[in-house]
Design a protein around this nucleic acid. Structure first.
Lengths: 235, 235
DNA sequence: GGCCCAAGAATATGATCAAATGTCTGCTTG
DNA sequence: CAAGCAGACATTTGATCATATTCTTGGGCC
């Protein structure tokens, strides 16, 4: 996704308010994206433009633009006759996503290992530590957010904007189902390969990092596939 | 307010235009997409909302939605200060796209071979025949369109919507530069592997089809990379 | 050369029009 | 007489437009 370029403003003091100065459609896009990835909106749920206008207290135009953008990214789908919903992930789609993430994420991890500075590794370790906290406390929202942040940080380290963009796009597709899966199984039963991955990155073992990333991804995706194929689809 | 809207049973004069009934933002999106892929708008060129409103004779809202969508797909980029342009492809991006298309297109060709019916193969052969005509006549526009159509048809045959979507998204990124490249080199010097690919598909040799597709892609992308790295970037 | 002002373009709002869905009523039929 | 279906209506929602507002930018003036 495109992080808007440095504010061409005159001053140097960028206030910590992250939401300052950005256009409304950008803010709405981010809010909706968050809610789809981590939050309130479940797979299969329908969203209405006017409902969002009320919920977010915004006008129609920015909401419409944000929705178009999310549809283009696959986070929402146009359900034929004017109805927009969060897509239900199909088991066959999981297979496609696994195939794509295998070569995307492993390559991104490889390149990130080659580029990573000590400060980057420290930041990743911090994120992973917070992730462990969220697991221990069973905090669903924090778990999802930090897990995503861990991967997204590696994407940005890879210095491969096109591939990173593709990988982030895939998160929007399986993210909602990931949330359902974790919500049902719990954060406790989520072993990850982040420690292995970080160890490889520290020693510069790019191939090993790629392998760890691939295994980490596979673990999660197979659980999603299992949930989707089991009876008792969401209600 | 209570004017009973006559049910559209009073048809009689339904224009055969295929573009009928679709919302304006969808039509504008398609027009812009065409123009970026095959047509008038060159890499680096800036597009203004109001300019498009005049050129396409549409209101602002549909134009804005179409632009957001194209930005999300990477066909346009948000140039910081409220300026929207067609991105200039960087040589490093070409490397990323090659890496992605290797996996994507070969897999899609493999699956398409497994799914293809005789009628599908006939349609592909027809497209390729028209492509050869365009090459022989040096028709740039027809060449680009049929080349894209050939690949897009294979994507749709693969029955893998997520991967096909990713592959089509990549076309929007290198399409404009492909047009520049062909425009400079000419259609004559564009050997393709389409005949090999079709032969493999006819015999059910999925692996061979994947290999041919990969080689076809590599030929084109390397030429794009060469053009980008050569002096005299277009202006 | 720097600052102010004006023009133009993008953002955002609300209103208006059209279409679709869901409901309600009345008629027909078993 | 009750139940089911059909047709119209009303409400909800999406699509589009005209307009106000803000921000950038370029030129003119001091």
């Amino acid at each position: 996704m495109s992080i808007p370029a440095q504010k061409p403003g005159t001053d140097s003091a960028m206030p910590p308010a992250s939401a300052a100065g950005l256009p409304a459609h950008e803010l709405i896009y981010r809010q909706l994206r968050e809610q789809i990835l981590f939050g309130e909106i479940a797979p299969g749920e329908a969203v209405t433009i006017q409902g969002l206008c009320l919920r977010l207290g915004a006008g129609m135009t920015p909401v419409r633009e944000a929705i178009r953008r999310l549809i283009a990214e696959g986070a929402l789908q146009f359900q034929g006759n004017r109805r927009v919903t969060v897509p239900q992930l199909q088991p066959s789609h999981v297979g496609e996503i696994i195939y794509a993430r295998q070569w995307l994420e492993s390559h991104l991890a490889l390149r990130a290992t080659q580029n990573a500075q000590a400060s980057d590794l420290a930041q990743l370790a911090l994120i992973d530590q917070r992730l462990d906290q969220a697991i221990a406390r069973g905090e669903l929202h924090a778990y999802l957010r930090h897990n995503y942040l861990f991967h997204a940080t590696i994407y940005s380290l890879a210095d491969a904007p096109v591939l990173a963009n593709m990988a982030e796009g895939l998160w929007l597709r399986f993210g909602p189902s990931l949330r359902v899966m974790i919500g049902r199984i719990g954060t406790q039963n989520q072993p990850d390969k982040h420690k292995d991955l970080l160890a490889c990155m520290r020693t510069g073992d790019a191939e090993g990092a790629a392998r760890a990333m691939r295994e980490d991804m596979l673990q999660g995706m197979e659980q999603i596939r299992h949930i989707l194929e089991s009876p008792g689809q969401r209600g």
